[in-house]
Simulated scan of single mutants.
Amino acid sequence: MPADAEVEVRRSARRKRTLTVFREQGRLVALVPARLTAAQERSLLPPLVERFLQRESRRTLPASTDGLDERARRLHEAYLAPRTAAPLPAFSVRWVDNQQRRWGSCSSDSGHIRLSSRLRTMPLWVSDYVLLHELAHLFVPSHSAQFHHLLAGYPDLARARAFLHGYQHATDTGGQAWSDELD
């Protein structure tokens, strides 16, 4: 195992045979069976971590489009970096045409972020919110309280969410008024 690789070891009573390594909020985490001895851990974990780091270093991410990668870096610096000590992991971001129900998606293990091309016609503060939301998933994969804490610094958070909910409602209803009294 590289000398500079710090690994958080988590023991699991449910895990019987396998060991696994992954990144969580920028740090390495190893899941091991609870019954694994310290000697077994010392012999099995270093090669596993080494293989993980080698695969990670070989991973090539597609080039971002339309300056999205630079926008993502600026959003990270402005709103996420002050709330997390972890550096921005490797990522790629691109527009996609096949997301009709989602605004964005993130594969936190690979760093691939996809934004619905429907966002291109929306105000910048709306697409920035979606991009920031997906960037936050690089640090916290779930929609937990910690995840929402990361997003809380974005000043247009409530406005962007309301805009997207309104847009989706109008799309779902065909733009029809929700009440006959409004005619």
Rank of each mutant, 00 (worst) to 15 (best):
D4W: 06
A5W: 00
A5I: 08
E6W: 11
E6I: 04
R10S: 04
S12G: 01
A13L: 06
A13V: 05
A13D: 11
R14T: 04
R15H: 06
K16M: 03
L19F: 14
T20L: 05
R23Q: 14
R23E: 15
E24Y: 15
Q25L: 02
Q25E: 15
Q25I: 00
L28R: 12
V32D: 07
A34E: 15
A34P: 09
A38M: 05
A38W: 01
E41G: 01
R42H: 11
R42D: 13
S43A: 07
L44R: 15
P46K: 06
P46W: 01
L48Q: 13
L48A: 12
L48F: 14
E50P: 05
E50A: 12
R51F: 10
F52I: 08
F52S: 10
Q54R: 14
R55Y: 12
E56N: 02
R58H: 11
L61H: 13
A63R: 13
D66M: 06
R71Q: 14
R73K: 09
R74Q: 14
R74L: 08
L75R: 00
L80G: 01
P82D: 09
P82F: 00
T84R: 04
A86W: 08
P87W: 02
P87T: 07
S92H: 03
V93R: 01
W95M: 07
R102K: 10
R102H: 11
S105H: 11
S105A: 08
C106Y: 13
S107I: 00
S110M: 05
G111T: 11
L115P: 00
S116G: 08
R118Q: 13
T121E: 15
M122Y: 03
P123F: 07
P123K: 04
P123A: 02
L124Q: 14
S127V: 03
S127Q: 12
D128R: 01
D128E: 13
D128V: 01
D128N: 07
Y129V: 00
V130S: 04
V130L: 07
L132P: 10
L132H: 08
L132M: 06
E134R: 02
A136G: 09
H137S: 06
L138P: 00
F139G: 00
F139A: 00
V140N: 07
P141G: 05
Q146A: 12
F147A: 04
L150T: 04
L150Y: 09
L151G: 11
L151M: 13
Y154I: 08
D156A: 12
D156G: 03
D156M: 10
A158W: 15
R159E: 15
A160G: 13
L164N: 06
H165F: 07
G166M: 10
G166F: 12
G166I: 08
Q168K: 09
H169F: 12
A170I: 07
T171I: 10
T171C: 12
D172P: 00
T173G: 03
T173H: 13
G174L: 08
G174A: 02
G175W: 15
Q176E: 15
W178Y: 04
W178R: 08
S179H: 14
D180V: 07
L182H: 12
D183S: 09
